[in-house]
Design a protein around this nucleic acid. Structure first.
Length: 562
DNA sequence: TTCAAGACTTGACAGTAATAAT
DNA sequence: ATTATTACTGTCAAGTCTTGAA
């Protein structure tokens, strides 16, 4: 068994690390000559670099964002950088560019890929498997571990989320000379592709990554790291939940404290206390400040602006209602109306005084001030621990409330999903309703209707069999009654299962359960629940999830308490 | 104290594989 | 066997938080 503390006391993450380096994106294959690009109605042969970037645009032609001004502007600017001087002087207006033949060509290609024979598909699959076996694993401290992302991201056009100022920019191709390799000195150093060199080979065992490079859009660093099933990720995950459990022990004290701070003479303390209240009660993210113009305009708690909240002294039958409306991570909208305590409300009014809509709500606060304060309240406490804690405790409490021991397995699973859903709603984990949602809902309803008529038929048959038996009283008719009874029972079960499915799906239309399940819910709660109610763990976690949570599946007994 | 760089977690979603229905 | 549907996996962007230098 591994210890709760870090494996090494000096902050090192490993002693030995050996891997084969990353897999690069396949090189660009020029268009066949018959596929033409047209400028101003006339065919024009592009140089390979310009053509490659043009194909990125052509591949996206069906997407709405290729019509957006910013996207087009950014793309065109970066595209021109790849052109020869002649191309540059000729191609001056994106609106005169016709990529449609390229687009058609790619569609045909993807159609052809779908039409491949079984053998061809099998061959590709085997090749992928070979690459996985060769590059997808590493050795870390005597263990063979799965690597998370061993393929380098291919070049393409950047599509940020939401209203991103950099959408359409060229994400450049990553070459071996861009890559920093990290491994141990005494390992076999990965070989760069023939004729190339790595940017650097280093041996830093204070970090967990195997390779890194700097991407050109934001200038941030990207990493190759291990899969969630690895020891190093698993231990970290466990640690995260243990920190959240420590918060459970002192959360009452912290709540008392911040409520007290609502009355503080100092503005910065009041702001800190109100912000913390939101983080605790609404599971808001911390909200680091962001560089303006570099990313989409999104906020979290500390970066909320005046324009993001509205105060209603009275709304319907409630008093002191705060209405939140802002774009959070990934530009997902957060909309919520909640009644708050009078003191919070009065404080908010105070914070809003003499401010413009675009001013910060908490002008005396940022995440680093808040986290410094939290650190003093509990070792290892930061804003995000509240999200983990509230998510996990909600799951545990909802499971307790919703699960009925006498329920069938599908009913219990519906309860589990509802508990999971409560968490997803708390964390505002939304998804776009699946494109085929309405249709698939209809299909399910048809199935239910069919099943219902099957049931009534079966019931009639049972009735008939019974009266038959009453008349004859022989063995054969008795058996027939039993058969029919079983048939009815079976159909009833199937019907119930379908109805459960329909309910579950309907309630889940705009809610994404995956993120909370993977990142916020202490898996030991789920494992314990499965054990307690005799639910196979496979019903809750698929294979990947079971691998990620192997530590919890090993560890938790039916009486585990978060 | 501020700032940026760095390392790591969290997040929605698209493409693909697996399974079910026809 | 083929097609439709669902489940899963990989992708890669966007957060959080820490650290170290100015």
């Amino acid at each position: 068994c591994i210890s709760m503390e870090e494996r090494y006391t000096d902050g090192s993450k490993w002693r030995f690390l050996e891997h084969k380096g990353p897999v690069f994106a396949p090189p660009y294959e020029p268009m066949p000559d018959k596929v033409k690009f047209y400028y101003d109605g006339k065919p024009m042969k592009l140089s390979a670099p310009a053509e490659e970037v043009a194909t990125f645009f052509a591949k996206m032609l069906d997407h709405e964002y290729t019509t957006k001004d910013i996207f087009r502007k950014n793309f065109f600017k970066d595209w021109r950088k790849e052109m020869t001087p002649e191309e540059k002087s000729k191609i001056s207006d994106l609106n005169k560019c016709d990529f449609s033949e390229m687009s058609t060509y790619f569609k045909a290609q993807s159609e052809a890929r779908k039409q491949m024979t079984k053998e061809e598909k099998q061959k590709i699959k085997e090749e992928n498997e070979r690459i996985l076996q060769e590059y997808g694993f590493c050795i870390m401290d005597k263990h063979k571990e799965r690597i998370g992302n061993f393929r380098i991201e291919p070049p393409g056009l950047f599509r940020g989320r939401g209203d991103h100022p950099k959408m359409g920019m060229l994400k450049r191709r990553i070459r071996p000379q861009d890559i920093i390799i990290n491994c141990s000195k005494d390992s076999k150093i990965p070989k760069p592709p023939p004729g190339t060199k790595w940017k650097e080979v280093r041996h830093d065992n204070k970090v967990t990554w195997l390779a890194s490079w700097t991407e050109n859009i934001q200038g941030s660093i990207k990493y190759i790291m291990l899969n969630p099933s690895s020891r190093i990720k698993g231990e970290k995950d466990w640690q995260k939940y243990e920190t959240a459990r420590r918060l459970k022990k002192c959360v009452d004290r912290i709540r008392t404290q911040y409520r007290d701070d609502w009355k503080s003479k100092e503005m910065r303390i009041r702001q800190r206390a109100v912000a913390l209240y939101f983080i605790d009660k609404l599971a808001l993210r911390a909200g680091n400040e962001k560089e303006e113009g570099e990313t989409a305009d999104t906020v979290g708690c500390c970066s909320l602006r005046v324009e993001h909240i509205k105060l209603y002294p009275k709304m319907d039958d409630k008093e002191y209602v705060v209405e939140f409306d802002f774009l959070g991570k990934d530009s997902i909208r957060y909309y919520n109306k909640i009644p708050v305590e009078k003191r919070v409300f009065k404080n908010l009014q105070l914070f809003l005084e003499n401010k413009q809509p675009e001013d910060d709500l908490f002008d005396r606060l940022n995440t680093s001030i808040l986290n410094k304060h939290l650190q003093e309240l509990m070792d290892g406490l930061t804003a995000k621990v509240f999200r983990t804690y509230n998510a996990s405790i909600t799951l545990q409490q909802q499971l307790k409330e919703l699960t009925c021991g006498d329920d069938s397995v599908p009913a219990k699973i519906l309860s589990y999903n509802r508990a999971n859903r409560a968490v997803a709603i708390l964390c505002n984990h939304q998804r776009a309703p699946p494109k085929t949602f309405e249709k698939s809902m209809q299909n399910l309803q048809t199935k239910i209707d069919d099943k219902q008529s099957q049931l009534s038929t079966a019931r009639k048959q049972l009735k008939a069999a019974k009266s038959d038996h009453k008349a004859s009283h022989d063995e054969k008719s008795k058996k027939a009654v039993e058969m029919k009874r079983k048939a009815v029972q079976r159909i009833e079960e199937q019907l119930m299962k379908l109805q459960m499915q329909a309910t579950d799906r309907e309630e889940n239309k705009q809610i994404a359960l995956g993120t909370s399940k993977l990142n916020y819910l202490d898996p030991r709660i789920s494992v314990a629940w499965c054990k307690k109610y005799g639910i196979p763990i496979e019903k809750i976690y698929n294979k990947t999830q079971r691998e990620k949570f192997a530590w919890a599946i090993d560890m938790a007994e039916k009486d585990y308490e978060f």
